[in-house]
Design a protein around this nucleic acid. Structure first.
Length: 197
DNA sequence: TAGACGATGACCT
DNA sequence: GGTCATCGTCTAG
């Protein structure tokens, strides 16, 4: 995968399919919501504090999964997009289930909509820390392009969810009419574009 | 080594 | 809308 700005990739990943064969069971879902974390100058980005053991995957080559543990109980899945040494990544926040829906619901233990949140989709697909650093172009976890690209008028941009710093930066992208988008509070995006030099 | 914090989600009112 | 569970990671001392 070629390095690209996370904000571009976050927009373009909408509609892509994530396929998981973790645990030998095939599950997949269509990406309906993403957030971009755009590098060391983004105060909400894990890479802003510099290279640590936890975030080292983010500083590695693009096209890898950055999976981290949060709040003592949840995993979150990101796609690294920046060049080596440039900590840019896209957090996948929600999926529309496509295959293996029963498996997802069984893994979650509940829910009609088992993948509408970053930690929920990890649990539904069986993603945990073992996938940190995995190349996302090969099994057991990989991405497939959509049959047709998502058009710009299907996408809404807003501020990011669940963070305190730079929350109004317009770096959250979701499919406007998808019922599978996560239920976080809507944060209006600032008209500024502070991540651009 | 202790203490604070966190890109969340479940549950309750 | 508010509270809390729960623990890896980081930082300060």
């Amino acid at each position: 995968m070629v390095a690209r700005p996370a904000a571009e990739v976050a927009r373009d990943l909408l509609g892509w399919r994530i396929v998981s064969r973790i645990d030998g069971t095939r599950t997949s879902g269509r990406i309906v919501e993403t957030e971009a974390y755009v590098g060391a100058h983004d105060p909400a980005c894990h890479g802003a504090v510099g290279l640590t053991r936890r975030n080292r995957t983010m500083f590695g080559p693009p096209g890898r999964a950055y999976v981290y543990f949060i709040y003592g109980m949840h995993w979150c899945f990101n796609v690294v997009t920046g060049r080596e040494g440039d900590p840019e990544a896209v957090l996948v926040r929600a999926l529309e289930p496509l295959e293996g829906r029963d498996t997802m619901v069984a893994r979650r233990g509940r829910d009609r909509d088992p993948a509408n949140g970053p930690a929920r989709l990890c649990q539904a697909l069986g993603i945990d820390g073992a996938m940190d650093g995995h190349r996302i172009d090969r099994p057991p976890l990989y991405l497939e392009p959509p049959p047709r690209p998502v058009s710009p008028d299907e996408v809404t941009v807003s501020g990011r969810i669940g963070i305190r710093k730079a929350r109004d930066w317009p770096l959250r992208f979701f499919l406007t009419h998808s019922p599978h988008v996560s239920s976080g509070p809507h944060v209006p995006a600032s008209s500024e574009t502070p991540w651009r030099p």
